[in-house]
């Protein structure tokens, strides 16, 4: 009697359990929404959990009714014709009001969270401007007078006011463990506000399709203790390192000066290009190319030789440098802590 019938929902249910199990015993999920580490993301996770359990309740009730119906009322030979029931007013009223009531329990916390997460940080918050580019991130700290690229550094337990816009198409700034995503739109300023609870490295990436390398527009957020953050700020404020006479890095500086690099990149005191990210402190970053690769000598070599092959659509053309020149430039960039 139940054959056939129970399989209907057995399929998604078994899958759900299997997947929960897989998730539980798997490794790290650096972009998971389930491990919130800020007031903003904690609010969202709580709201989702609330709705999730209502949904599970509704799912179980409705699918059980469906299963009972198809298990119990399978046609049997010789059975009497079913009663031609056309409807039932009380039932109709009941199953209109029941979902309406459940929705009240979802709508009220939803509205509360909408206003609680409307993006206004309290007075005295650290202001950070996020500017999206195809396909990298620019961050400005107007009160600290510094900028950062792809890797955002923030002090822990400090209210942050993020103001976002785009230099070209629409992007979306998303660091799941610190908060919900918000779009970067040319000509507009969008805001989110949050306060990270714990130090650490948080992953994010662009969430709005923005062209060829949308998949490669990634970012990192380093939430640091006040003292570590202050050290980073001081480092960024300092003039870029000047390589020692005769060092490989010094040769690299000369190559950088006479190559196409200066057309697009800034290094304070060396070049003033504005198309690509500022490289004044590139050696101090953990990643390159929009948080796509770790910042190593090997990845820098590959990136400078042929950026578009690693990041489709990237504006930086392949550089035709001799192996010696390439080594020298890489040494120079790595020296720019």
């Amino acid at each position: 009697m139940l054959r056939g019938a129970v399989y209907f929902d057995a399929v998604p249910l078994v899958l759900a359990l299997l997947l929960l199990f897989l998730t539980a015993c798997s490794g790290q999920f650096p972009q998971s929404v389930f491990e919130p580490r800020s007031d903003f993301s904690t609010e969202l996770a709580g709201l989702f959990t609330n709705i999730f359990w209502w949904a599970v309740g509704v799912f179980v009730i409705v699918e059980t009714l469906l299963l009972i119906a198809i298990a119990r009322y399978r046609a049997r030979p010789g059975a009497a014709e079913p009663k031609p029931v056309h409807g039932h007013t009380a039932l109709e009223i009941g199953w209109t009001l029941a979902p309406a009531l459940i929705l009240v329990f979802i709508a009220v916390p939803t509205m509360r969270t909408i206003f609680a997460t409307a993006g206004q940080a309290p007075e005295g918050a650290l202001r950070v401007e996020v500017i999206g580019h195809q396909w990298w991130w620019e961050y400005r700290y107007p009160t600290l007078n510094i900028s950062a690229y792809n890797e955002l550094h923030l002090p822990v337990a400090t209210p942050i006011q993020v103001e976002m816009t785009s230099a070209d198409v629409i992007h979306s700034f998303w660091v799941p463990r610190l908060g919900g995503k918000r779009d970067l739109i040319q000509g507009r300023t969008n805001r989110i506000a949050f306060r990270a609870d714990s130090t650490g490295e948080y992953w994010g990436q662009c969430a709005e399709f923005c062209g060829a390398s949308h998949a490669n527009m990634r970012l990192r957020v380093f939430v640091q203790s006040d003292s570590a953050f202050q050290r980073w700020v001081d480092q960024e404020r300092a003039a870029p390192a000047t390589p020692a006479k005769g060092s490989p890095a010094e040769a690299g500086l000369q190559v950088f000066r006479r190559s196409a690099c200066i057309g697009c990149h800034t290094i304070a005191g060396v070049a003033q290009g504005k198309i690509g990210p500022d490289l004044s402190h590139v050696g101090g970053r953990a990643t390159i190319a929009g948080a796509l690769f770790p910042n190593t000598s090997e990845t820098l070599h590959r990136w400078i030789m042929n950026a578009p092959s690693l990041k489709p659509g990237a504006l930086m053309p392949p550089q035709n440098l001799s192996p010696q020149d390439l080594d020298a430039v890489v040494a120079y960039l790595q020296s720019l802590k």
């Binding site: 989702f48 949904a55 979802i106 939803t110 909408i114």
Partner: peptide, 21 residues
């Protein structure tokens, strides 16, 4: 039913900020 219920999690605007796109 499954699609409808995940739709309710999208309807809740703040919750949707972690889900959209």
């Amino acid at each position: 039913i499954i699609g409808g219920l995940s739709g309710v999690t999208h309807a809740s605007a703040p919750s949707d900020l972690q889900q959209t796109d």
